[in-house]
């Protein structure tokens, strides 16, 4: 199966990259990615994956677009305020690239649906905004052997890690447990700089395409940290923890379980703003 004349034109500037070429493009068109969260990270990820021609993109988000999302969630427009984010994302992505399939899922990732959902995709992208979803996504990816691109952002900075189960550290190997109830007394959303979400989300898209095409050196066992105000990147080494509860030698997590929702109390200052 070759590329159509229009596809050759659309993808010409990446087709001429020897690392991609016609074969890589066909591989992308035959690939699928599930983006968890159509927010500050999910927006740039989904836009770049759609533009590059990743053939099937699932977007899971239960929320509706609000005006306060728009400074960073560049998938959505002012006219989409009030609409489900997954539907707004589908419209925007299909306008960008009509030849891909976008599946909008207006729901949450749960312990009940994660494995079945993930089994439909080649790679999972975690652009969610809360710890329960992040740990759930990690555990489901490890248990089903799916690559996971993890990214997080707060204030002017963020971090990215690519998890290839059993080849390298998983999210739990690096951060064994989320903040315990009470450690995060205030769930009020911390500030986030839109362009910082753009930096992290774009790095995540870069990782997705590297993983799909087996290109270069993905951020496996390397946690990349971006400090936006200082204007620098740092990388720290991480590794698979033999005592990891999900990917270690004697795992205690053998099925996908929900984390108890983290209790929030008000009136106290959060020790870790942005963690909720």
């Amino acid at each position: 199966m070759g590329l159509s004349k229009e596809q050759v034109a659309r993808y010409s500037r990446q087709l001429i990259l020897p690392e991609i070429g016609v074969q890589g493009q066909q591989q992308l068109l035959a690939s699928s990615a599930l983006v968890i969260g159509a927010g500050g990270l999910g927006s740039p990820v989904a836009l770049y994956l759609a533009a590059a021609g990743v053939g099937t993109i699932g977007i899971i988000d239960a929320d509706a677009v609000s005006l306060s999302n728009l400074h960073r969630q560049v998938l959505h427009t002012t006219g989409a305020v009030g609409e489900p984010k997954s539907r707004s994302a589908k419209a925007r992505l299909e306008a960008l690239n009509p030849e891909i399939i976008v599946t909008p899922l207006q729901e949450r990732v749960t312990a009940a649906n994660a494995l079945a959902l993930f089994s439909n995709y080649d790679v999972i992208v975690d652009g969610s905004d809360n710890f329960p979803t992040r740990y759930l996504a990690n555990d489901a990816c490890v248990l089903s052997g799916k690559p996971l691109i993890h990214g997080g952002v707060v204030h002017f900075g963020g971090q990215v890690l690519t998890v290839v189960p059993r080849e390298g550290a998983c999210y739990r190997c690096v951060f064994p447990e989320p903040p315990e109830a009470g450690a995060v007394p205030n769930c009020q959303e911390a500030g986030v700089f839109g362009a910082a979400a753009g930096v992290i989300g774009t790095l995540m898209a870069n990782e997705v395409i590297k993983v799909l095409l087996a290109l270069g050196r993905p951020l496996v066992n390397r946690l990349l940290v971006f400090e936006g105000l200082a204007g620098h990147f740092r990388e720290v080494s991480v590794r698979r923890n033999p005592e990891c509860a999900v990917c270690g030698d004697n795992p205690t997590i053998r099925e996908v379980v929900s984390l108890e929702s983290i209790v929030c109390t008000t009136g106290q200052e959060a020790p870790w703003p942005g963690n909720k």
Binding site: L41, S128, G152, V154, G158, Q159, L223, V236, V238, N275
Partner: peptide, 29 residues
């Protein structure tokens, strides 16, 4: 750039000129 959990934990030695990073999990997206 090495995780102290895989070194000597909080007893890991540091010396002048070393670089120590404190990195929390971040939930925001």
């Amino acid at each position: 750039e090495e995780d102290i959990r895989f070194l000597q934990g909080d007893q890991t030695a540091v010396k002048d000129g070393d670089d120590v990073s404190i990195i929390p999990a971040i939930a925001g997206g």
